[in-house]
Amino acid sequence: MSASRRQILPGFGLSLACTLAYLSLLILLPLSGLAFRASHLSPAEFWAIATGERALASYRVTFGASLLAATVNAFFGLIVAWILVRYSFPGKRAIDALVDLPFALPTAVAGITLATLYADNGWIGRYLEPLGVKVAFTPFGIVVALTFIGLPFVVRTLQPVIEDIEPEVEEAAASLGASRWQTLIRVLFPAIFPALLTGFTLAFSRSVGEYGSVIFIAGNMPLISEITPLLIISKLEQYDVVGATALAMVMLVISFVMLLAVNALQWWAANRHSECSPSMGARR
């Protein structure tokens, strides 16, 4: 029995060693270097840099805009993924290809394009400006840019899961007297929620570290529309490596804690769904 188990994955020890070495070179060593550099600061110095007025404002803009953009993408990404999987219509392949455009488009090009479209004299901005809606060079523009670059993560995460849900499941719920709303909430959404949460996490993570598409549309005004990555770059340009390291360390810790919380919620949702499925099958 033990011999057959070892033969299932030949070279497991070597594969594991290569995996750990690769992850160490790409992730652990750079993060360790960042932590080592930040350790040269005293707690008081680190706290003064991390809680400065400009730094706190940049945290609010960065994480607030990222959270809002990821939430918008989770809602509309679910709709887009559902339509692409469940319906056939003219131009479906073109729309499906457009979803991947933010992956292929350089972020700087995306930022320039969005800034041009939403400027006061842009194709879209000229119609929003009389309504008092200003997008370009405001925090709202940051949300627009982050929504643009984060949508593919949600759609591509949800599509395989929706494809695995058989239409017969909905028909069975309808035959048992469930309304469409009850079918969505009690049958479909529990199966989709773990993947939706994964897409939300990926979109949020991508947004937190985004730089190129944001700086062209944000306006980059300190205390108003300045993101933390730009503040870090500004400190490096001023040869303030210590200050940039402290801010980077804060971003790392906050991002890790938030992702850990989301992953814990995702694990709970997946386990809850797997526990509910056998019980539902037993009742049937």
Rank of each mutant, 00 (worst) to 15 (best):
V241D: 08
V241C: 01
E237Y: 09
R186T: 10
Q182A: 14
L231S: 14
S205H: 03
L197I: 14
T228D: 00
S279Y: 11
P194T: 11
M221C: 03
V208E: 01
E210H: 07
I217Y: 02
T245W: 00
A269W: 07
N220T: 09
L252Y: 08
G219P: 08
A244F: 01
F216G: 02
L223R: 14
V241R: 08
Q266T: 15
A248K: 01
G243Y: 00
I217S: 04
A269C: 11
N271V: 09
G243R: 02
G212F: 12
A246R: 05
D240N: 13
S225L: 09
S255Q: 05
T198K: 01
I232W: 02
R206G: 10
I224K: 13
Q238G: 12
A191G: 13
A264H: 10
K235I: 05
I227D: 00
Q238K: 12
A244D: 00
F193G: 04
M221E: 14
S205V: 10
Q182E: 15
F189E: 08
P194W: 03
S207E: 04
G219F: 06
A203Q: 06
K235M: 14
V257F: 12
I215N: 04
N220F: 03
V257H: 05
L188Q: 05
P229S: 11
P190V: 05
W268P: 02
E275F: 06
A261T: 12
L252P: 05
I227W: 00
L188F: 09
I215L: 07
A244N: 01
C276L: 13
A244C: 01
P229L: 07
V242N: 05
E275N: 12
R186P: 01
H273C: 12
M221F: 08
L188T: 07
L202S: 05
V257W: 01
H273Q: 15
A282Y: 08
A244G: 14
G219H: 09
L230F: 02
S213G: 10
L247A: 02
F189K: 08
I254P: 04
K235A: 15
Q238Y: 08
I185N: 06
V187S: 12
L247N: 08
P278W: 11
S225I: 01
L188P: 06
T201D: 02
A264M: 12
T245F: 05
M258Q: 11
Y239D: 11
P222E: 09
A191Q: 15
G199W: 01
V253T: 14
S225P: 09
A270Y: 03
M221I: 15
L184N: 04
A248M: 04
A264E: 11
V187W: 04
L247W: 05
P194E: 12
T245S: 13
L231Y: 00
M258Y: 07
Y239P: 00
V262E: 08
I227E: 01
E275P: 00
S225D: 06
A269M: 10
E210R: 10
R180L: 10
A264C: 11
L188I: 15
I227V: 15
L188A: 00
A248V: 01
N220S: 13
A261W: 10
V242E: 14
R180Y: 09
G212K: 06
G281I: 07
E226P: 03
